[in-house]
Design a binder for these strands. Structure first.
Length: 119
DNA sequence: TCCATGACAAGAG
DNA sequence: GCTCTTGCCATGG
């Protein structure tokens, strides 16, 4: 664990900690908010996370509203269970409707999540 | 230093 | 909707 990257990791972790319970964020969104170099680095940082870190890693999903597949089989279901325990609902295709559950912070960097007003 | 890998994303077919 | 390809860049051998 080099110190240089720990700064980037720290920004990623702090951003993820801001995600409220019952909402989700995408890897790309976290990358923008944390000023990381890209979505893959977010996944990399979360992978390096320890179990007792207190970072709600399970609230980070991919841009398609799916839980990212992981090397360990069955873990996908674990993450899904954690999200459902927070009140999120998956549709019949196993996806989370981002239009409804995506975290939308209201600060200057939220342009990434800015959408058309829903009707 | 080069090379392969990866909890992604966007575009093409 | 699907799979495949390319861009991205930190990390480790």
């Amino acid at each position: 664990v080099t110190r240089r990257t720990s700064q980037t990791y720290d920004r990623i972790y702090r951003t993820v900690k801001r995600i409220p319970k019952g909402r989700v964020a995408t890897y790309g969104q976290v990358a923008v908010l944390a000023a990381a170099s890209g979505p893959r680095q977010v996944g990399y940082a979360l992978n390096a996370l320890e179990a007792n870190s207190g970072v709600p890693w399970h609230r980070v999903i991919n841009a398609q509203g799916r839980v990212s597949p992981r090397a360990q089989p069955g873990w996908e279901q674990v993450q899904r269970g954690m999200l459902e325990a927070e009140g999120l609902r998956f549709d019949e295709h196993g996806r989370i409707p981002l239009a409804r559950y995506q975290w939308k912070p209201r600060d200057a960097l939220s342009r990434f999540t800015a959408r058309k007003p829903c009707r």
